[in-house]
């Protein structure tokens, strides 16, 4: 059923409904944000820098990855590369929500896009399938999660300053844990993903062992794995 995009509206009520719908997601977002805040403190970020970081970047996995590469002075280029590689997946989300976004203009459009994250995308697609036609919903979920994310990382920063973490502390496992749990959701079965993921991991490991500086092992692994995945996919005859 193709929804006519002329019916799509953008209302304050939609924004509020979206913000309300984001509340259950706070349960998962809070621990993630706390961890990012604690690690930001451990890496030497100030309270204000941590707030600015979460408020403007607002993409947890890329923030974790950047913190992992973080040093003094700040690794400007490596951080930008980390943001690009982790967040390019969101490009497809904006395109997929076009039936809503086409009817929105100006600050509403660009503001909505600025708050786009995995969960606001998922909830909005669900809402669209149920016949929802208020694009304000997407912005509402985004604003709700943004608020939660900012608060959680700031609380984490304060907590980090109270409990000082020695290197090798189990909390540093949090970034690996975050990426592993995202991988569980991405897994499409051994036929599609095993080869590319194994190659990505092994190339990264080899580059790391060879002494290449970060983020090179990560980049080389990622590109080899993704290239293998694309090559296998395009070689197979279409079903």
């Amino acid at each position: 059923m193709a929804m006519s995009s002329s019916q799509v509206v953008f209302t304050r009520h939609g924004v509020l409904r979206g913000a309300w719908a984001s509340l259950p997601l706070w349960i998962g977002t809070v621990p993630f944000g706390l961890v990012v805040g604690v690690l930001a403190y451990a890496k030497g970020m100030s309270f204000a820098e941590t707030g600015l970081f979460s408020a403007t970047v607002f993409a947890g996995a890329s923030q974790l990855l950047a913190l992992d590469l973080w040093a003094d002075p700040a690794p400007v280029l490596a951080a930008a590369v980390a943001a690009f590689v982790v967040n390019i997946r969101m490009a497809a989300m904006g395109a997929a929500l076009a039936s809503w976004l086409d009817r929105v203009e100006g600050w509403r459009l660009w503001g909505t896009l600025a708050t786009l994250v995995d969960h606001s995308f998922a909830l909005s697609v669900q809402d669209q399938r149920r016949g929802g036609r208020d694009a304000g919903y997407l912005l509402g979920v985004g604003i709700g999660l943004w608020t939660c994310w900012l608060l959680a990382t700031l609380v984490g920063h304060v907590a980090g300053s109270v409990v000082r973490l020695p290197p090798g502390h189990p909390l540093f496992f949090a970034s690996t844990a975050a990426f592993l749990s995202i991988m569980v959701g991405l897994w499409r079965g051994p036929r599609v993903d095993f080869g590319p993921w194994a190659v990505a991991g092994l190339v990264a490991l080899a580059a790391h062992r060879a002494g290449l500086p970060p983020p090179l092992p990560l980049l080389l692994g990622t590109v080899s794995g993704a290239a293998l995945g694309a090559w296998v996919e395009l070689r197979e005859p279409r079903a």
Partner: peptide, 28 residues
């Protein structure tokens, strides 16, 4: 992305990018 389609190979690589990235991160 709505106006231009990227080359087919680039598009397929983008689909495989997130998983490969995370695998490259967690393995070492």
């Amino acid at each position: 992305l709505r106006k231009f389609r990227p080359p087919v190979f680039a598009e397929a690589m983008l689909r495989h990018l997130p998983g490969a990235l995370f695998a490259a991160y967690v393995t070492p």
